[in-house]
Design a protein around this nucleic acid. Structure first.
Length: 823
RNA sequence: GCCUGCGUGGUGAAAUCGGUAAACACGUUGGAUUCAAAAUCCAAUGACGAAAGUCUUGUCGGUUCGAUUCCGACCGCAGGUACCA
């Protein structure tokens, strides 16, 4: 005969998963008068199977969602798939799979995994970003952004991955290599589409202030650095008459930017990037010696990482005039000057800048010190002096400190109209076009007569053709026999479709808004202002995902939110209120990866122990923001706890409301057990709302369990389980629903009332220390006077007080007594 | 180099406001149960020491009656970023 009380994870879990499906237990209400919580985890790429990082991510969001549902709030906890992208195409190249088929089969499999893990996602709002419906609305937004001038096309030097044969955004270049395949990138001159994210640079930076408190400090700093705002002086350097003649009067001057105007009297040369217009002109016009041209070409051909190895440069044989001293300054080309920052030209102050110093030493250029330390002597023998200090050899600015002189020098330049205060950013416009098949097509048409034309919105989506040949060479859309031929939406004549598709980061920049849309209007609109206003009030309440998205995805999503605001689609500035960045899942000290062979397969784990064990271990082993070291015996321990938790529920007497207990009639152990149970609830409330340290919450439940087990009052057991199985439901939902339906008719999975009476105690234990060193403890009545406490404490530690003079007696209420002695 | 974090038992970790360091687990050891094992239950477990006791939160110093917590310097680790002018 089957034992009713036997813990059978597989059976229990299957039962409740089916129950939740049948009852649509996790669909949000459309009653917008209710208080809401929007809990979102970063959606996965459908790579085929979930890995432990996913399990951690969704276990965390599921815990938040379930807790807030218990509190009676209207919870939106959606999931989708970020399903465009190269791996689908790579699978096609490798195995001849159809990218669409490959993607949607993976999605189906992963949905099955979500079910076996018991995640409480809304099913009705599930989406994949490769769905044509999603593409349709996205293409609409792209057209709006183009019309607003936020999307533009230009030729530019781009990061090109020769392996994947595609353009990469700066954000996708990691250490000079492709973020996906690790191939060193090359620079290529191509026509591309860009989002004008720099137009929002200042706002993206300033609004980081609004995110303080809700976002990890670390992420805010990373975004701040990425935007990289710096203030300084921009001015023109004019060529002298001879140089101008040499340049056929084609150039008068060039721009430079500096954040250290205080060092300007120390300029002894200037340097241009090898790609600078003036350099290109001189090469074209044969104004340079053959060996100089060869040197410059060599620099241009060197990758950005190799350029960092050693500074090199070459003199152009032309000069500019120093704007303040009127002295002649030689112009060089230098490999460390970047064409895409500032104006691609620098003023060089070798005395006060490390790079300029190294370069000057190598090529024997003059080094003029103009700043000296506030105390001590200026020593330029072996290195530059890069700190701020006091100016000298600086004309009328002599004797000023760096800070003051920066202000004065900029003012001087502005008054004399020879320069201006400027701000520079490291942030670049976001290049979004990709020469790839498996992405959302950019909905534009090239017409010989009309130029670049938007597709009409009623023709959207511009869907991908199904019959493509994917070889890995070039862009399959470009090579498709018919797809790209169309008629111009404006004049109707023959035209050609844009064959570039969009960066997949575009899809993830607005998916959280799509989830707000009511499934009833799913076909009609991307989302409505009203729906978004409700669900996004204060933003997504809890956004959970990996720290690896600290810059790219989070910056782009913030950018889109601001753009959508300016397009009138919504009325707020920031999408994510509270961000929780989870740590990586490690095994044997290394990130789990197939190549290292240290992965743990979630499916196998669930089969062996059940989903609840996996979920409990993940939340118990470490706080969410920390790295999680996988430990098989720790998993075993979590399983044992659940089993014990389930087995001991046999001490409970079935009831439909929480038992009423007369606290004062209880024994010491019974009182203690109740106190531990309610403490666990207090801690749980803190954890879900502020601290997110689920490990300590679970420890609290374990302590309460141990305390319950040390007594035998069945009312105390029942009350304890009423509360503990409610606390644990977000963590081990299947087990708790089983217990709850066995004993409580599912009525305890609800907001709990804290009974203060259980915290009232007759006596407390105080530590007693002498000179801060712990020497014992005393038990005193809660209302004991300070004098009586001190007297008792002195008695307790009498032997440490012998022949000593008592200097001070400190009583810290409810904590300890410290007696300070001398001699 | 610069910017963030982080350093606590054999292991994962806890200590929320400066107040008895190591909660809760894992592991280990011993015991009960068992023909035996698994499972379960009980007990011990920071280090040194027979004990009294001494020491212990990366190192050194400071503030304080009292520091894992605050301040300074250094060492180590992780993440981000980088000829950014």
């Amino acid at each position: 005969m089957e034992n009713f009380l036997e813990y059978n994870a597989a059976k229990i879990e299957k039962n409740w998963q089916d129950y939740w499906d049948e009852n649509k237990s996790f669909e949000p209400s459309e009653d917008f008068t209710k208080e809401k919580r929007y809990i979102l985890s970063m959606f996965p790429f459908p790579s085929g199977r979930l890995h432990m990082g996913h399990v951690r991510n969704y276990t965390l969001s599921d815990a938040f969602a379930r807790y807030h549902r218990q509190q009676g709030l209207n919870v939106l906890h959606p999931i989708g798939f970020d399903s465009f992208g190269m791996p689908a195409e790579n699978a096609a190249i490798k195995n001849g799979a159809d990218p669409k088929k490959w993607t949607y089969e993976n999605i189906d499999y992963m949905k099955g995994e979500f079910k076996t893990l018991g995640f409480s996602f809304s099913k009705e709002r599930e989406l994949a970003t490769s769905d044509e419906l999603y593409t349709k609305f996205e293409q609409g937004f792209i057209i709006d952004m183009y019309e607003k001038g936020l999307l533009y096309r230009k030729k530019g030097l781009l990061n090109w991955c020769p392996h994947d044969k595609t353009v990469l955004a700066n954000e996708q270049v990691v250490d000079g290599c492709c973020w996906r395949c690790d191939t060193p990138i090359e620079k290529k001159d191509m026509n591309q589409y860009y989002f004008k994210i720099t137009q929002y640079g200042d706002e993206l930076l300033a609004d980081l202030e609004k995110l303080k408190g809700g976002w990890p400090h670390q992420v805010l700093t990373m975004q701040d650095n990425w935007i990289g705002k710096s203030n300084g002086l921009e001015f023109d350097l004019f060529f002298d008459a001879d140089s101008k003649a040499k340049l056929n009067a084609q150039f008068e001057s060039f721009d430079v930017f500096t954040t250290r105007p205080d060092t300007i009297y120390g300029v002894s040369y200037t340097a241009l990037a090898p790609e600078h217009d003036i350099v290109s002109y001189m090469i074209e016009q044969n104004l340079l010696d053959a060996e100089v041209v060869a040197e410059i070409k060599k620099m241009k051909a060197t990758s950005s990482i190799d350029r960092q190895k050693e500074k090199s440069g070459v003199s152009l044989g032309i000069n500019v005039i120093h704007p303040l001293t009127q002295k002649m300054i030689p112009v060089w080309v230098a490999n460390f000057v970047l064409m895409d920052y500032g104006s691609g030209a620098v003023m060089a102050v070798p005395a006060h800048d490390d790079r300029d110093y190294d370069f000057a030493k190598k090529y024997d250029l003059a080094i003029h010190g103009v700043i000296k330390p506030k105390d001590g002597e200026l020593d330029l023998e072996n290195s530059a002096f890069t700190d701020k200090g006091i100016l000298f050899n600086s004309g009328e600015f002599d004797g000023l400190d760096s800070k003051k002189s920066q202000y004065n020098i900029i003012k001087y330049f502005e008054e004399n109209k020879i320069g201006r205060k400027t701000t520079n950013y490291k942030l670049k416009d976001w290049g979004v076009s990709r020469q790839r098949y498996w992405g959302a097509p950019i909905p534009f048409v090239h017409c010989e007569d009309c130029g670049l034309v938007m597709e009409k919105k009623e023709n959207l989506p511009i869907a991908l053709p199904a019959d493509v040949e994917i070889t890995g060479e070039g862009n399959p859309l470009e090579n498709h026999p018919t797809w790209k031929y169309c008629s111009c939406p404006k004049c109707g004549r023959d035209a050609v479709r844009e064959t570039d598709t969009m960066d997949t980061f575009v899809e993830s920049s607005w998916y959280f808004l799509r989830f707000c849309a009511s499934p009833k209007n799913w076909e009609k609109e991307a989302f409505s202002k009203e729906q978004v206003a409700y669900w996004m009030q204060h933003g997504v309440d809890h956004y959970i995902g990996g720290i690896e998205h600290a810059i790219l995805h989070l910056l782009y999503a913030r950018f889109f939110t601001k753009v959508f605001r300016d397009l009138g689609y919504l009325d707020f500035d920031e999408p994510f209120d509270k961000l929780l960045t989870q740590g990586m899942v490690l095994k044997d000290g290394a990130k789990m990866s197939k190549s290292k062979g240290n992965t743990v397969d979630p499916d196998a784990l669930i089969q062996k122990y059940g989903a609840d064990t996996a979920r409990l271990f993940i939340l118990f082993a470490a706080p969410p923001t920390q790295e999680l070291e996988w430990n098989d015996s720790g998993v075993e321990g979590s399983y044992k706890f659940i089993k014990r938790f389930f087995d001991r529920s046999s001490n409970v007497i079935a009831c439909e409301s929480i038992p009423i207990i007369k606290h004062e009639t209880l024994s010491k152990e019974e009182k203690f057990a109740r106190k531990k149970v309610y403490e666990a609830q207090v801690r749980a409330n803190e954890v879900y709302n502020e601290r997110y340290t689920f490990n300590t919450m679970i420890a609290g439940v374990m302590e309460a369990m141990n305390a319950l087990n040390a007594q035998s009052n069945s009312d105390v057991w029942s009350e304890g389980y009423w509360i503990l199985s409610s606390i644990m439901e977000p963590v081990i939902p299947h087990t708790c629903w089983e217990i709850s339906s066995n004993y409580f008719h599912l009525k305890n999975l609800d907001k709990q009332v804290i009974l203060e009476e259980v915290f009232i105690e007759d006596s407390i234990i105080l530590g007693v220390s002498v000179n801060g060193k712990n020497r014992g403890e005393i038990e005193v009545a809660t209302d004991a006077t300070k004098e009586s406490i001190i007297a008792l404490a002195k008695e307790k530690v009498a032997k440490y007080l012998e022949a000593k003079e008592i200097v001070k007696e400190i009583v810290v209420p409810k904590k300890l007594v410290n007696i300070v002695v001398k001699g």
